[in-house]
Simulated assay, not measured.
Amino acid sequence: MTDDLPQHCGDRVAFAADLRTDGEPEAEFNPGIAGRLPRKNVAAGALVRDGEGRVLFVDPTYKPFLEIPGGMVEDDESPLAACQREVREELGLELTLGRLLLVDWMPTHGVWRDSLQLVFDGGTLSRAQIQAIEPAGEELGGFEFLDLDAAMPRLRPSKARRVALAHRALLAGETFYGEFGRPVP
């Protein structure tokens, strides 16, 4: 089944066909309950590296911390498709993302509702790909490749934990689950 993923990633026509094949949606067991259920935000980012194993970080113009490339998943958009779209919009790169490294739950914080933060393997960029990066002008002040130790003080603490946990998952060849950047066995 995972062999179908890249072919369907973000393909609204394929998803529409799958929905038709699935048949009528399930009836609400309690009329009106679907509208009362909680909703979560979902964000998807990519752990992208250079040939030396350093991680690609972007410098958003609208916040004081570095981020990994990625962003919010839109309605009816798969997380994988959202991550590819965000990387393309932010950096001008067409990446084929690898496996899911991390699912990290983040609690409600200020005006931001709780969310799931997904991190995919963005692979290792060639020199040509790095030279082709074009940061989105108004959204990004730039980008840089950093070792995790050098990046940590420039990340929000929860993001530092999340990136480190995703990196551990990459090295372990596994997918991890975390809560606010902390591993859950």
Score class of each variant (00 low, 15 high):
Arg54Asp: 03
Val55Pro: 09
Leu56Val: 11
Leu56Thr: 09
Asp59Tyr: 03
Asp59Phe: 05
Asp59Lys: 07
Asp59Gln: 11
Thr61Cys: 13
Tyr62Cys: 08
Tyr62Ala: 13
Tyr62Asp: 15
Pro64Asn: 13
Pro64Arg: 14
Pro64Gly: 15
Phe65Thr: 12
Phe65Val: 11
Leu66Val: 02
Leu66Ala: 00
Leu66Gly: 01
Glu67Val: 04
Glu67Gln: 11
Pro69Ser: 10
Pro69Tyr: 03
Gly70His: 03
Met72Thr: 09
Met72Gln: 11
Val73Lys: 02
Val73Ser: 05
Val73Thr: 14
Glu74Trp: 08
Asp75Phe: 10
Asp75Trp: 07
Asp76Ala: 13
Asp76Val: 06
Ser78Arg: 10
Ser78Asp: 15
Pro79Tyr: 04
Pro79Trp: 03
Ala81Asp: 12
Ala81Phe: 08
Ala81Arg: 03
Ala82Glu: 06
Arg85Asp: 13
Arg85Met: 09
Glu86Thr: 07
Glu86Met: 11
Glu89Phe: 02
Glu90Phe: 02
Glu90Lys: 07
Glu90Cys: 03
Leu91Arg: 00
Gly92His: 03
Gly92Pro: 05
Gly92Met: 04
Leu93Pro: 04
Leu93Val: 14
Leu93Lys: 01
Glu94Ala: 12
Glu94Cys: 06
Leu95Gly: 03
Leu95Ile: 13
Thr96Cys: 12
Thr96Pro: 07
Leu97Ala: 11
Leu97Arg: 01
Gly98Ser: 10
Gly98Arg: 06
Arg99Ala: 15
Leu100Pro: 06
Leu100Trp: 05
Leu100Ile: 08
Leu101Arg: 00
Leu102Thr: 00
Val103Lys: 01
Val103Pro: 00
Val103Asp: 05
Asp104Trp: 05
Asp104Arg: 05
Met106Cys: 09
Pro107His: 12
Gly110Ile: 11
Gly110Cys: 10
Val111Pro: 10
Trp112Pro: 00
Asp114Glu: 15
Ser115Trp: 05
Ser115Tyr: 09
Leu116Arg: 04
Leu118Gly: 02
Leu118Thr: 01
Leu118Ile: 04
Phe120Val: 10
Gly122Lys: 03
Gly123Lys: 00
Ser126Lys: 01
Ser126His: 03
Ser126Arg: 02
Arg127Met: 09
Arg127Phe: 07
Arg127Leu: 11
Ala128Glu: 15
Ala128Trp: 06
Ala128Cys: 07
Ala128Asn: 11
Gln129Leu: 09
Gln129Ser: 08
Ile130His: 00
Ala132Pro: 06
Ile133Thr: 04
Ile133Glu: 03
Glu134Arg: 13
Glu134Val: 14
Pro135Met: 02
Ala136Pro: 00
Gly137Gln: 11
Glu138Leu: 09
Glu138Val: 07
Glu138Tyr: 06
Glu139Gly: 05
Glu139Cys: 06
Glu139Thr: 07
Leu140Asp: 03
Leu140Met: 06
Gly141Glu: 11
Gly142Arg: 04
Phe143Gly: 08
Phe143Asn: 10
Phe143Ser: 10
Glu144Ala: 06
Glu144Gly: 06
Phe145Asp: 04
Leu146Trp: 02
Leu146His: 01
Leu146Met: 10
Leu146Lys: 00
Leu148Glu: 12
Leu148Phe: 02
Asp149Tyr: 02
Asp149Gln: 13
Ala150Thr: 14
Ala150Phe: 01
Ala151Asn: 00
Met152Lys: 15
Met152Gly: 05
Arg154Gln: 02
Leu155Gly: 01
Arg156Met: 14
Arg156Ala: 15
Arg156Leu: 15
Arg156His: 15
Pro157Gln: 11
Ser158Lys: 08
Lys159Thr: 13
Ala160Ile: 05
Arg162His: 10
Arg162Asp: 09
